[in-house]
Structures are given as structure tokens and as C-alpha cells.
Design a protein around this nucleic acid. Structure first.
Lengths: 163, 163
DNA sequence: CTCATCTCAGGCTGACTGAGATCT
DNA sequence: CAGATCTCAGTCGGCCTGAGATGA
């Protein structure tokens, strides 16, 4: 086990890049967790307003699948039922979706995307794409494609497993 | 723009897998953010105690680089200076590291790994490896290697960029 | 009766900010 | 003086639990 006690010469000003230990650099879980921050920051910055990432997820889901209940939105996005209430509240207040009781099952709220919601979705699409370019900047096209496929397989595998 | 209004036949009990929209499935940032949870859970479960992941990171860093200041620990691990205080406090209380003022620069605390700390590090090494196997379960060896290299490049690229 | 849905209230953690004291 | 370090206090968002009301 490599326990070096040598004191490296430590310069006064410490703004040279400082590497993490090899153990962590070789740990996929650590790298994934470590990338959460940058991914989050870049997307948030590209989209402007706070909470826009969650808006984007809901609007994209409604655009593709049509009107859904809050519970199904939560299942598709892995968002807690409890947080979905507040999220949909905000979207309704902003006029991006509408909420109406489902006539066929009166427990449910049917959430529908509105015209302003679609316009916002289109703008957020652009922001999302810009963020990807920054996030993946050091990667060639083939490596981006390989990464995408691998991440999809991991998410699929842990969709049920998780929780 | 694909706005389908067709009501899919919705069975009463909804425990069939529900996919996220294609927009998100093709978004590396979303996939990365989405994998934070599973990665975190698996590592935490394998390591047992809560906070063990952070312990592991600090102990691995001290083992490889020798005694470091809290600030440099924070830089190498991308942990906030403020959170590092509480983290080191806990490690000191558990006897896994020792904290002493640096004689050459009295602003700094020199953090050193202890013998019990090294034993805990070895145990956490095993737990970390087990967690990787679960996390990467659906991937072949070559794909795991490719993923590792890609994630390393991304982390390296955003080490300075981030923040 | 069981189960699903929506809602609210609240806890917990990780990431972060601001400010102050100390020291180089 | 500027800048680095350590510490505390506190905010904010994501994630999660529990419980109640309503309805299938």
C-alpha cells in the first residue's frame, strides 16, 4: 500500500491543477458523482432561470406522450410525487401547462402542455444542446456516441433496480 | 414537433416500466444527472455507514499524497472548504485521521491518516469495488474501459472549468 | 377492503455563500 | 496591502417519509 510521507515542495500560490488520488480516478462511481456538478451548472447556466431543467423535463414528456397524470410524469422522470406537486404548480402559474381533473378517473389531474409551454420547450431545446457541447467539449463524435449509448444502458438497467 | 394526442390504453395497475421522453434519453447531461442517484445509493449501501463515501475520498487522498492541508484536500476532491471542516472533524473524532497545526504555515491544519484510518481505507476499497460491479452490471469489459477513459477526460476537462 | 392519486408538512443531505478571525 | 486558510452560520434544491383526503 502506497503511503508516501515525502512532503512535496508546496509553492505559496496554489492555483496549479491538483489531481485527485488514483483510487478515485479509477472509480466510475466517483467520476459519475463528480460530473453531476458540472452537468448541472452548465445546463442551468444555458437555460437561465433556476428550475428550468425540471421544466424542460416535464414539458418534453408532455410534448411526446400527450396529457399525463402527475403520477405518471413522476414515474417517467424519476421525480417524487411530492415534488411533482410543487413543480406542476409552478408550471401552471407560469401558464406553460394546464391542470384539469381527469373525467375518467377523478383521482387524477390531467396535465397538458399549452402553446406558451411549447414555445418555451423549443427555446429550452436550444439551451440544452448548447450545454451538451460545453459538457462534452473534449470528446470526439464517435466517443460522444459511445458515451451516450453506455449511459442509456446504465439508466435503463437502474430504472427499476434503483429504489 | 410530435404532439400525439392519442390516449394510450392505460391499464389499471401501472407497474410496467415507463420510459422517459426521447429528448431526455438523448441528453448526456440528463443521463449523467440521472445516474447520480443510483451511483450514490450503491456505493452507500456497499460501504454501510452514511458519510463513508466522503471518508473514503479523504483517506485515499491522504494515503497517496501524505499529509495535506484541508484546503488542498478540498481542491483535490472538489469538496467545499466549509464542508471539509465538518468532514475532518468527524474523521478526527473517529480516530481515522489526526489534525495538527502546520509549523511552517500556522494558518494551515496538517491532516494525517492514522493506522485505524488505513485499515478502514482497505475495507472501503473492497466495498467500492463491489459497488462498481453492481453499477456497471450491464456493460462488457471493453465498454467499461471505454466509459472509464471518457469519464476521466470529462472530469479532467471540467476540473478547472467548473466553478 | 385494498390500492392509487394528490396534497401538505416536514426531515435530511450535499452544494454553496458570506463573513469573520488569523496568518503569509 | 492583497491573498490564503480555517471556521461558523445559514440558505437552497434534491430526495425522501408520513399521513390525510378522495376515489377506483
Amino acid at each position: 500500500m502506497s503511503t508516501r510521507r515525502n512532503r512535496e515542495p508546496v509553492p505559496a500560490s496554489q492555483h496549479i491543477p491538483q489531481h485527485p488520488p488514483d483510487r478515485l480516478r479509477r472509480l466510475p462511481s466517483w467520476l459519475l458523482i463528480r460530473l453531476y456538478g458540472p452537468a448541472n451548472r452548465l445546463v442551468a447556466a444555458a437555460m437561465g432561470e433556476p428550475g428550468a431543467r425540471a421544466d424542460y423535463a416535464v414539458l418534453a414528456t408532455l410534448d411526446q406522450f400527450g396529457a399525463l397524470s402527475q403520477a405518471e410524469l413522476g414515474r417517467r422522470l424519476a421525480v417524487d410525487r411530492s415534488d411533482m406537486v410543487a413543480l406542476v404548480n409552478r408550471l401552471v402559474d407560469d401558464g406553460l401547462v394546464s391542470r384539469a381533473p381527469d373525467p375518467t378517473d377523478r383521482r387524477r389531474n390531467t396535465i397538458t402542455i399549452t402553446e406558451p409551454g411549447r414555445r418555451r420547450l423549443a427555446r429550452l431545446d436550444d439551451a440544452a444542446q448548447r450545454a451538451q457541447d460545453e459538457l462534452l467539449a473534449p470528446l470526439s463524435e464517435p466517443r460522444r456516441a459511445a458515451l451516450l449509448g453506455t449511459l442509456q444502458d446504465l439508466v435503463d438497467h437502474h430504472r427499476d433496480t434503483a429504489r
